[in-house]
Design a protein around this nucleic acid. Sequence first.
DNA 1: TTTGACAGTTCTATTTTAGAACTATAGCCT
DNA 2: AGGCTATAGTTCTAAAATAGAACTGTCAAA
Lengths: 154, 154
Amino acid sequence: MKWDTLDEEPCSLSRTIAVVGDRWTLLILRECFLRVRRFEAFQSSLQITRHLLSERLKKLVRFGILRRVPYSEAPKRYEYILTQKGLDLYPIIMAMVHWGDTHMGDERGRPLLHEHKNCGKLFDPVMVCSECGEVLHAKQVHVHAGPGQREAVG
Amino acid sequence: MKWDTLDEEPCSLSRTIAVVGDRWTLLILRECFLRVRRFEAFQSSLQITRHLLSERLKKLVRFGILRRVPYSEAPKRYEYILTQKGLDLYPIIMAMVHWGDTHMGDERGRPLLHEHKNCGKLFDPVMVCSECGEVLHAKQVHVHAGPGQREAVG
DNA sequence: TTTGACAGTTCTATTTTAGAACTATAGCCT
DNA sequence: AGGCTATAGTTCTAAAATAGAACTGTCAAA
């Protein structure tokens, strides 16, 4: 597998893995969703090495997930803010959190609870069909080759 | 970070990353959802090294994501089948596929199209609130410490 | 002038992954 | 019987990624 061109594979999962498919990137993004924005803050809350953090932030900026925004002119300092593309990763992270809550829990109970401001209740994220609104299950989904796959293969 | 105990962290995202947080594991699971079950089939469709495939399958079995089921007695041969815990990873994979479709697409169009058998239509997966059914956005969610976090910290 | 905060970069050691070759069991063909 | 093929791995060495610590540069405040 050539990881350097994974983002051009004719597979949307591969392309997503090219961006978030390593152990640190999703943890960095979790911090972003918890309003962490600065290098030192990421580093101390994650205990990631400074080298790796620097690499990952650059990569996320390159892919348009984060924007590097100056917050101080002298000395020049930057913070990292989620773009819309980055905010759209939210369902991925919530799906992972929910799976962890369901299947990897221990006797201590859930680490975090999520409140939906619109309805005021504690909730779980649920994945539904955009057309009929029903809850999705793997066995009810049929996969077809789309135009991108036919072009890539044929 | 001690990756060997990541599945015991007081964070459901970390615990999920402990299982699926590397580049190959999610690609292997994609094949599982496409009904691939056997060692040779995984290896040839993914071009993963046999060594790594063997490691990853063992890990997925250890975590209860796959079951190793004999399909031939002499010689002893096994295939790998998703458990319910594994099937429940579907929303994660669909969320990643959807994000890739939306943000990493190219001029060739989508590689795969998904049909919901229940309603017969091509669909996108959408994440909603379990309580009110509205579409979820990061900014409408407020996070509280749950019992697992308080026990871990306090 | 010295100290400290912040945002990195650079270096070496360890761990992980890639790539290829090898092992083992058994059916089938001649 | 002897050799070929299929399947499911294991073992080996080289290359790449990550960990961990120290170092750099800028500026403000004491």
